[in-house]
Design a protein around this nucleic acid. Structure first.
Lengths: 133, 133
DNA sequence: CCCATTGATTTACATTTGTCAATGCGTGGT
DNA sequence: ACCACGCATTGACAAATGTAAATCAATGGG
């Protein structure tokens, strides 16, 4: 599982392939940054709310205009938050006619969940963490 | 689950009982704030790294002095990050003699993972892997 | 073709965040 | 009692973040 060749790409490349489990060995810096980037996207109540709203919307999709009122924020602000979520690969944006429909990237959420939950592999204990950047 | 009476407490009250799944209905504001609070704690590469370092440390515990060098930050800064993680209930602090040992609150991570993963309504519990309480 | 509608960008600004140096506070060894 | 050690707190400061007003770009209906 070579992950050291991971760049600062917009991430959304493959949202389902995130990183190694957080608790199954010391994450290298790149993975830690990648994970933190996604967690940070969920680190705001409004954005958590937005994801939840989209997931619960009819058809599991919603446009900006559907979201501004429930969260009580201006359209530019909601658009800004959605961009952050999209850049993190947590939602997908699909332009359809005049509207931009957003859907939840469930695979990305699952991948994130996997990095938090019990490590899939029995984590071979590594002694001495000589980490030298 | 009445959660509207939830204040800005240090959260760590019961880290395993977090919130309803993000994608199984619209989260109320309180739950969204609670979730965001925890995600935000993981929204920094250093803190992700710290959790990973603790989990991988011998005995799955570590003191600040074990952590400063791997992350390459000053002791006050690491202490600051650990406070944020502890306030979010993601790690537990245990003063033992002169040292403060930190351990990962795996239940909190699992609870967080559960709010991300498939909503409890559909998929039954994972049958293969030893289910833990 | 004109114009209303949807959403993204830009600009601006107050607040929060990450970091370190300096300092304070317990604990334990001598 | 004293002092070294481990860690938390305070103060300070640059950088990032959340938000809104104003503006821009594109689409679709008359």
């Amino acid at each position: 599982m070579p992950s050291s060749t991971r760049a600062r790409l917009p991430v959304a490349d493959d949202p389902a392939t995130c990183c190694a489990p957080m608790t199954a060995g010391v994450l290298d810096v790149a993975d830690a940054e990648e994970l933190a980037h996604r967690f940070k996207a969920l680190g705001d109540p409004t954005r958590v709310r937005l994801v939840s709203l989209i997931a619960a919307a009819p058809g599991a999709e919603a446009c900006i205009c559907d979201l501004t009122e429930p969260v009580g924020l201006s359209q530019p602000t909601v658009s800004h938050h959605m961009k952050i979520l999209a850049d993190a690969g947590l939602v997908r944006r699909e332009q359809r006619g005049r509207w931009a429909y957003f859907t939840v990237q469930r695979e990305a959420l699952d991948a994130l969940a996997r990095t938090l939950g019990e490590p899939a592999t029995a984590a071979p204990r590594r002694s001495g963490g000589g980490l030298t950047t």
